[in-house]
């Protein structure tokens, strides 16, 4: 039976709690991104040209950020379509829209973190302003 996904509104936790969960999700990924970017840019600077490594790191961050944004919008826009296609074609992989949004939020956070981290290292430490 291709049943409609139930939107049971009353079971949702209060808004502030929802927001908190989301912020923690993106925040953790963001911090991870900042750390990874800082460490790798500093390491890359020792080995090669600082401007080039900052540019590459920032571009990689924006790659993840953009990918995450597209994936998030895709999950929201196509969520039900993908779910019902998998059901009908017998290729269920447990894909659900909230799950996909969560994953994309992590990627968005991480990418943004890499961009911010690179910006920080680039402007403060290396003084490329």
């Amino acid at each position: 039976m291709t049943a409609a996904p139930d939107h049971s509104a009353d079971e949702r936790p209060p808004l502030s709690e929802q927001l908190g969960v989301r912020l923690r999700l993106v925040g953790t990924a963001l911090v991870a991104g900042v750390v990874v970017a800082t460490v790798s840019v500093v390491a890359a600077t020792v080995l090669s040209d600082p401007t080039a490594s900052v540019e590459t790191a920032f571009a990689l961050g924006s790659l993840l950020f953009g990918f995450g944004l597209l994936g998030w919008s895709g999950a929201v826009a196509l969520g039900r379509g993908i779910e019902s296609m998998q059901e009908t074609l017998d290729t269920q992989t447990g894909w659900t829209e909230p799950d996909a949004r969560r994953a994309m939020a992590r990627i968005i956070g991480f990418g943004l973190g890499v961009m911010l981290g690179t910006m920080f290292v680039g402007s403060v430490v290396l003084g490329l302003a």
Binding site: F67, L70, G71, G74, A75, L78, I82, T93, W95, D99, A100, R102, A103, M104, R106, I107
Partner: peptide
Amino acid sequence: DVTDNVIMRTMDVLLA
């Protein structure tokens, strides 16, 4: 968990 979530949902976006 998180590993699965991030890897597989990324794969799904690429598939789309």
